[in-house]
């Protein structure tokens, strides 16, 4: 990332080769459209190139920073495109939500898995679905046929439980 900040194109290409597949997959889950996912990733990489100097390794990993940029871009796009975008295209891969052992590749992932497993399965699924699929409160309410207020309070309590568990 430091070399990218100095305008090193080769370093940028290496960064792309290493992370593009992950970022594209993240964008695909949220936008559910190949064109829009590709556009999201392209804009994210432009932002990475232009703002590489702002990356602060003390606040997290380079991959985490890039995934964040991609997620927020994808979320912004689907929110602005309106509710019609979400139900069209690929359905959520809900089976993946129960495969929390995939988180075990890192210490942070293991800690998050242990804390997620303390949540009731339905609450856990809401949290994972919001993060991975980019579903808003309203979309989750429609997906699970649960009142909006109940969704909001459930998610808020779930996040509070996660915070308490992870900070313990």
């Amino acid at each position: 990332m430091q070399r990218c900040a100095q305008g090193d194109r080769a370093a940028f290409r290496a960064l792309y080769d290493r992370h593009a597949a992950r970022l594209y997959a993240v964008a695909m889950r949220i936008t559910r459209h190949a064109n829009l996912a590709a556009d999201t990733v392209q804009e994210a990489f432009i932002q990475i190139w232009q703002n590489a100097r702002q990356f602060d390794s003390a606040r997290g990993s380079a991959e985490g920073w890039m995934i964040g940029l991609t997620r927020y871009r994808a979320l912004d796009l689907v929110r602005r495109a309106g509710p019609a975008l979400q139900p069209l295209g690929e359905e959520p891969d809900t089976a993946a939500f129960d495969q929390l052992d995939k988180l075990d590749t890192t210490a942070d992932g293991r800690a998050l898995r242990q804390c997620l497993e303390r949540l009731e399965p339905s609450r856990r699924r809401l949290v994972v679905m919001a993060f991975v699929e980019g579903f808003s409160h309203a979309e989750l309410a429609a997906q699970f046929v649960i009142p909006l207020g109940t969704i909001k309070s459930t998610i808020r309590r779930s996040l509070a439980s996660l915070r308490e568990c992870l900070d313990a």
Partner: peptide, 16 residues
């Protein structure tokens, strides 16, 4: 962001 970032491991990488 640090707390939730590991969740992206649930998404299988996909070649653009």
């Amino acid at each position: 962001e640090r707390r939730l970032a590991p969740l992206t491991a649930l998404v299988e990488p996909q070649e653009p």
